[in-house]
Design a protein around this nucleic acid. Structure first.
Lengths: 144, 144
DNA sequence: TTAATTCATATCATTTCGATATGTTTTAAT
DNA sequence: ATTAAAACATATCGAAATGATATGAATTAA
């Protein structure tokens, strides 16, 4: 039941962009430094994020990334789903017909409830909420 | 964010024992047939379950397993934790001191909420609840 | 004695994870 | 023009986890 580093790093990356949402383009190198994450690994991650249209990019010297929309418009769920796929504890919830026991299945109700509970959390927290938490935590240069 | 087959199979196994909770000892072979799961794989799983004291076993011919306690006393959470470990989306929630960014961490609040939401589901469903669902689903020989 | 069963380990193929490596293309600054 | 910085693209790789299978020993009722 773990979220992969890709999902976690993507959230930190997006939160970094949200906190530094000044209009400037931020190079991935800065984020890698601040977050202490491998630059090359972050490049892979932001490539996915960029293709999804969550960020704008400018190539070349002085280039970088910025959020495509205001932090209010990104939920944690959007970001996690992009990297992790559906937030289901079992595949059968997302692949109808994948299980021929589905009609007489009892435990699927449990998995469904878990999925709903998780989604209820992640779809109701935005980057703006996290920026607020960050600011309330006092003066600190970094975060996780 | 997936639950492994061990966790899922363990729940089906325990539910099978709960449904067939007649006082008899049930060989793993029967359960493997009913659940269409590899017998040898189920053996590994029930070994863990047995060591935790969740079931009683009798060796030899006519031997098998039965629940050590009534179905009401087993939550889904107990069974999943036994196979999967803590139901946290990130390790840092369970390993204090594992992360040196913990003090200035913002995203950990998200992970904590996810964990709480999942636990709230699985710790409030018992095998007895699932047996009830099973019986309400009508006459069917099998379940998942 | 035999067959059925739990119990114990070892092994194994495949996939996933978490990266690293090696470029290319683009662009601002010099 | 040249250079350095940066996005973009793709391949590779070691380690761990996953999901089993294999082999056999110990126990017990029939």
């Amino acid at each position: 039941m773990k979220i992969s580093t890709k999902g976690r790093y993507a959230l930190r990356l997006m939160l970094d962009l949200a906190i530094n949402n000044t209009g400037e383009y931020i190079p991935i190198k800065r984020i890698a430094e601040r977050q202490e994450i491998s630059e090359k690994y972050l490049e892979q991650i932001i490539t996915q994020i960029s293709r999804a249209g969550f960020v704008r990019s400018v190539r070349g010297s002085q280039g970088g990334y910025q959020l495509a929309n205001p932090p209010e418009e990104y939920t944690v769920g959007m970001i996690l789903r992009l990297m992790e796929g559906e937030l289901s504890p079992v595949a059968c919830l997302d692949e109808p017909g994948s299980c021929d026991r589905a009609d007489r299945c009892v435990t699927v109700d449990v998995w469904r409830q878990i999925k709903d509970a998780v989604e209820n959390v992640v779809d109701n927290i935005t980057l703006a909420d996290l920026v607020k938490s960050y600011n309330e935590k006092g003066t600190c240069e970094y975060f996780i």
